[in-house]
Simulated scan of single mutants.
Amino acid sequence: MVAQGFTVDLNKPLVFQVGHLGESYQEWVHQPIVSREGPRFFASDFWEFLTKTEWWVIPLIWLPVVFWAIFKSIRMGLTFLEVSLLVAIGVLVWTLLEYTLHRFLFHIETKSYWGNTIHYLLHGCHHKHPMDGLRLVFPPAATAILTVPFWQLLRLFTTPSSTPALFGGGMLGYVMYDVTHYYLHHGRPSTEVPRKLKKYHMNHHFRIQDKGFGITSSLWDRVFGTLPPSKAPQKKT
């Protein structure tokens, strides 16, 4: 595609190209290329490796953290019922965070060189290549960095014994989100609920990309008025 005199070469590493699209970046990035083979991001093999994550790595790494956090609250004296309630609240908080990040950060409109570049790395690449299976889940190193402020924020508003259970619930919600997201793109659901959820998410990618920000459910889309219409015109390419 040619934009503002610049041509994006899909056969070369993309990350440091897309910033040159300027104001045309938003149009370009929302014209999906449906291919299971993902693009090259970086010329460096090291940095390229860091952008790729198998889906099963997420539960493998983070579910032990979830169980550690839950049992920490139990060891600190909370009952099983209290911990269960806190975990459920943590999951609910994650679903709101999932919606908020997707709507206001992942879909922020950029036009500067570095704005476009960062957006492409954060979420634009997923809309451009929605079937790239190695870039569907969040790299664990980045997640580990973000868990620190999440933990500290919980400590400000909760008691020492309830913080771990809430944190565990939030992390459980995150694991459910990432695994569900992968399944919605690459799974073949045979029952009604996951089929509807898959259709809901595919509509976000291929029909109306400024609505339907929920991944694990449409709850917050309903609450905040971003539920997509039952029928929407096909996005022009």
Rank of each mutant, 00 (worst) to 15 (best):
F67Y: 08
A69R: 01
A69Q: 02
I70K: 06
K72H: 06
R75C: 02
R75P: 00
L81V: 14
L81T: 14
E82M: 07
E82Q: 15
V87F: 05
A88T: 13
A88V: 14
V91H: 03
V91N: 04
V93D: 03
W94G: 07
W94R: 07
L96S: 06
L96G: 06
Y99I: 03
T100Q: 04
L101Y: 02
R103E: 02
L105H: 03
H107Q: 08
E109T: 14
T110N: 11
T110M: 15
K111L: 05
K111T: 10
W114R: 08
L121E: 01
L121A: 06
H123T: 00
H123W: 00
G124P: 00
C125F: 01
H126Q: 10
H126V: 02
H129C: 06
H129T: 08
P130F: 06
F138T: 03
A141L: 13
A141I: 11
A142M: 12
A144G: 11
A144H: 07
I145M: 12
T147S: 10
T147G: 03
V148C: 06
L153P: 04
R155D: 08
P160A: 11
P160I: 05
S162Y: 02
S162K: 08
S162T: 15
T163E: 13
F167D: 01
F167S: 09
G168A: 01
G170I: 04
M171N: 06
G173A: 13
Y174T: 08
Y177T: 10
V179H: 09
H181D: 08
Y182A: 08
Y183H: 12
H185E: 01
H185L: 04
P189D: 05
S190Q: 14
V193T: 11
V193A: 12
V193R: 12
R195N: 10
L197D: 04
K198L: 05
K199P: 01
K199Q: 15
